[in-house]
Amino acid sequence: MAALSTTGRPGHPDRRRGWLHLFWLATVYGIPAILIVLPLLTFLMFGFWSVEEGRILRDFSFDNYFAFAGNESYTRVFTGTLFLALRVMIINVLLGFAVAYFLSRLEGRLKYALVLGLIVPLLMSYIIKIYAIRGILGTSGLLNKLLIFLGILSQPSDLFLFNLTAVLITLSLALLPFTILPIFIALEKIPANYLEASADLGATPWQTFRRVTLPMALPGTVVGGMFCFVLAVGDFLAPELVGGTRGFTYGRLVFSQFGMAFNWPFGAALSVILLIVSLGVIVAAGRLGSPKWLRQ
């Protein structure tokens, strides 16, 4: 009690605050440094080592990177995966923008219900989503049935399972909520009177959309696209479950180095390449996602 009432006393409380402060600093900087930065650095180092007869050889060399660049089957998987992720991103940004825009125009209970309906799949287990989607992709699956019903196909196609198309469909569907939500939030943040001001100055609805809505929603759209690309490019669960042997992706290549192939240094080198691509996309998105006008 006495200590509480004499807060102004110099020396003692300050010293205690000093220790606390030090502890605080140590936690705040120490834990991210040890558990995020250090592992990434370790793993960067691993990429320069090699493996011989099941033992890790700690000699610095670029051999893993040369091995990757020199092997066409690796580089083909790499570029194939980049294009796959790019296609997933484009599909999802287009679809996502359409859905987000429509939802942002709605009002009241319907809007609330539909947005909640988007958050449910967002928080749903990722592998469960993949599993469920796989269920509709087979030759006797719902997708084939629908396409035959609509007269687009005359007989069931095996085009939708155990190949890259299956991976594309699965990733697009599984990642779509991650794309829609940031775009929707960006659209919701545009005050109605900007749109009114635009119309007042003579802009047609289409001009208002193109010159006000679209640029103002761009930061959120970039973030949505980034989430989609980064998650797609590094994913190995969806290709593993719906890709079969023909749907081989870079993520599976990395994963196999830590499983069956058991070549950790090579796997680490492959992931470093993935890390560089992802960081590049994240930084680029960070730039695009915070244009000058958004900063104070």
């Binding site: 793993f43 590094g234 190995f236 990395v254 830590f258 992931s271 993935l274």
Partner: peptide
């Protein structure tokens, strides 16, 4: 980052 990188590191 892709979860695979966090997991591997």
């Amino acid at each position: 980052l892709p979860p695979i990188i966090t997991g591997l590191s």
